[in-house]
Design a protein around this nucleic acid. Structure first.
Lengths: 248, 248
DNA sequence: TAGTGGTCTAGACCACCCG
DNA sequence: GGGTGGTCTAGACCACTAA
């Protein structure tokens, strides 16, 4: 990464900088390597630190860099492919044997307005909320809340074991219903404070939000809202075998 | 939206601001309404313009706001659900009757390295590149490049009509192959200069990149890289009927 | 031409990690 | 305590849009 002169064209400096750095990452750095700190990089390219940071933010968004406060900026490994449901295999309920999630917490109460609407229940109707997390290679990549109306699964007696145990009870009861299909949407969002903490990110970090509607007997039996780290994850809807990594 | 005092808690100002503005959008603004300009908003909340802009960027990322240079900041409509192919329904080749894309340009030459790897061809092997675009309600929401190795479909004679015509020829030839399934990945990216222009965004704008691999006879017959505007789109992998809008 | 959002600067201080 | 990235400021100028 030389002290390449930035051209004086009508392209933003931070964008040129992004390109220069991107090429340097390809040719002169290896995964895990630490970059010079922001103040030095800014000086080397003759720009303000804020401008340099704009370029780094782009590269982090693209999954090329990883920045950690107090530590430094490192070259990120290629994004991990996260399977979010093979298309070929028959879909089934969440929490079925072999799925990648780990039930952790449980709560009961009214669902967020948008979720209640998707569930087709009143805004103040009580629902089960099962909180699950998903890890890949020791790294937490996603957290999920699964909403199940008490109309689908009756209430779980309080004091019935740990939260995780009650969460699993809800899932077990859900499996007794006839599975009627599902559909998914994927959109970009920013991590709320709680998700950010769970995913080891700062609030506002970009996330991919996967909303799954589970059907049974023509109605919506449950809704899951899963939040994936957008910087490190590539969602995979594989039909067959996993897609080979699109490394750079 | 009052001149709410920002609390002095260990939460970043821009994040508090995002929350305050988000609630104001819910309760005091309607879709399409123009917000006060950035300088005034910053003054009203007693923060620097850069800090205010950080909050607006978050809200734009979440699809709540739309900002246009020279015009102003407006309240965005709910994201449009864009169908990107049912997960379980019978898939088929791109360009089949009724698909949402419009072939526009054509080129032939070596593919980008990553695409060549996915295709399983040499990095310098010539491939067809068909450029297509997709619109919803008069708005362009995605642009796509479909790569087809000349091993799958022979070369198209030059001077054979317009570019769009040659693009359609490649698609037509592709349909003669036996369809062997497909798989998809979704990840976050930032719009390259050309995509940004086509999507009417600035370079670096967040996009959802959908990579589809089309199989035939056990091999990869084609690869499509589609770039969706992340601010306005919610990708829908419906199994059955479209998901109802998750309006706020 | 006036007004908007987009870019850029040069500085300051803070929160966090690690030796 | 020293070094890192994260936040914030107060300005300046630029690119674009629409009247």
């Amino acid at each position: 990464m030389g002290t390449t002169q930035l051209e004086t064209v009508p392209e933003p400096k931070y964008w040129q900088l992004r390109t220069v750095l991107s090429e340097a990452l390809d040719s002169e750095f290896t995964v895990g390597e630490i970059l010079p700190n922001e103040r030095e990089l800014a000086a080397r390219f003759g720009v303000a630190r804020a401008t340099l940071r704009q370029a780094l933010e782009q590269l982090e968004l693209e999954g090329r860099l990883q920045r950690r406060r107090g530590v430094g900026t490192t070259v990120a490994p290629p994004r991990v492919g996260v399977d979010v449901g093979s298309e070929s295999g028959p879909h089934t309920w969440p929490g079925a044997p072999g799925d990648a999630w780990h039930a952790e917490e449980y709560a009961e109460g009214p669902a967020p307005a948008a979720v209640a609407r998707t569930l087709g229940v009143a805004a103040d109707a009580p629902v089960h909320a099962v909180l699950r997390s998903r890890t890949t290679g020791g790294q937490q990549v996603a957290s999920e809340v699964l909403y199940v109306p008490t109309a689908s699964v009756p209430s779980v007696p309080t004091g019935d074991g740990s939260e995780a145990a009650r969460a699993r009870t809800v899932l077990r009861e859900l499996h007794r219903l006839p599975f009627g299909g599902q559909d998914r949407t994927v959109e970009l969002g920013s991590a709320r404070a709680e998700d950010a903490r769970r995913l080891d990110r700062l609030p506002g970090a970009p996330v991919l939000i996967v909303t799954t509607r589970y059907l049974s007997d023509g109605g919506t039996a449950a809704v899951s809202v899963a939040t994936y780290r957008a910087d490190t994850c590539r969602l995979s809807f594989s039909d067959t075998d996993p897609v080979p990594v699109l490394a750079s």
